[in-house]
Write a protein that binds this DNA or RNA. Structure first.
Lengths: 204, 204
DNA sequence: AGATATGTGTACTTAACGGTATATAACCCT
DNA sequence: AGGGTTATATACCGTTAAGTACACATATCT
């Protein structure tokens, strides 16, 4: 009960770094989707064998879910900071420009794994599909709550519909993920962001 | 050389209707994506056995491509008519409201198979992925050409950027597909359409 | 040094995958 | 009625899928 094993390194040490292996797994899932990714794809990219993968991450499904967590904390790290901007308009602005930069970044797969990781998929992928859906919906709830706060703060007109604003923004952000897959550049997505903001109410 | 066999019904007749079988196949691909759909899924939904499927449609890939053609002529039939509206604004209006109605229609799978049929996928799906990508890009080119015409017609300001307008619209339309998968209703998508139009230039 | 604990690589299992060979059934034409 | 032609159902093919058993390697602890 008292021994916490993780601090003491007993037994043979791992021959690979768990975090970098997870990054590699994320990249594969991102490019190929859950259904399109095989364990061979994963082990090859991660540079490990299947027993090591299962020992470290559980199974394919759990590996995917862990990769998504990593995604939200690293490659897609613009969302939460944008929420903290002082006004609703600035929140939208930073969100849209952040997405434009991020989703077409040539140093990583195009688009957003939360959108494209398991959109239409087999029954075997039902769990991860739902996990992604929940994250998309949750992101919009956060936006909505932020906009409701903005109404209280007086930087959004009281007549504004926070829910619709959040859904509009969510729609464009998710659409940008498809656009990036279509080959759109960050600059082209920036122009979309600019147009999107024209429909966005400014001062209250 | 002279005999056109398709009119004369020689040999054992088909025990199924090709068009309705294709509709069933489309529905499965739409819900599960190309990678997520197995031949068993298809034959079960279509009510036929594998040899019949292969004889009538070639293979899985060709069946998918035929299903997409059907999709564009039937379940997603709002796009081309919208292009023919008299002004750019009306084009955008009909496109957006048509999509809002269509993508959340409860009588068919949610979203758009051209968006979600093979977004992130295995290498085995590379051909169909590219086919879908080409259709998305082609749709945007049609929109752009329509808006350039509108500038000549004088119902869009000459200062308007047809390419960006088309991409903005494409982004929202594709985002709506994700929204529908998220569970958004047609009414909620209509509100998004309304907001989208607020950024759209009206008379020239 | 030896017991204990953990990780690694190879080889395996079971099930499902996409696709097909084959025998039979159902039609047209003469 | 019988030959020619096409569709059907069953049973099968080779391959790959996800997941694991097992023998061995490498560490810590006493």
């Amino acid at each position: 009960m008292s021994a916490v094993s993780s601090t003491v390194n007993i037994g043979r040490p791992r021959a690979f770094d768990v975090d970098t292996a997870l990054e590699k797994a994320l990249e594969v899932f991102w490019r190929k989707g859950y259904d399109g990714t095989s364990l061979s794809d994963l082990t090859e990219a991660m540079g490990i064998n299947k027993p090591s993968l299962y020992a470290a991450f559980g199974n394919k499904e759990q590996l995917f879910l862990k990769a998504i967590e990593l995604y939200e904390s690293r490659p897609c790290s613009f969302f939460l900071p944008a929420l903290e901007k002082p006004t609703a308009y600035q929140v939208a602005e930073h969100m849209l420009y952040g997405a434009a930069m991020n989703m077409a970044d040539q140093n990583q797969p195009q688009g957003c794994v939360v959108v494209q990781g398991a959109l239409s998929c087999s029954e075997a992928a039902a769990t991860v599909k739902e996990a992604l859906l929940n994250r998309r919906v949750d992101g919009e709830h956060k936006l909505r709550a932020r906009f409701e706060q903005a109404k209280l703060d007086g930087d959004l007109p009281v007549s504004a519909d926070a829910e619709t604003l959040a859904r509009y923004l969510g729609t464009v952000l998710q659409g940008m993920a498809i656009q990036a897959n279509n080959g759109a550049t960050s600059e082209q997505l920036r122009q979309v962001a600019e147009m999107t903001l024209q429909a966005f109410p400014r001062a209250g």
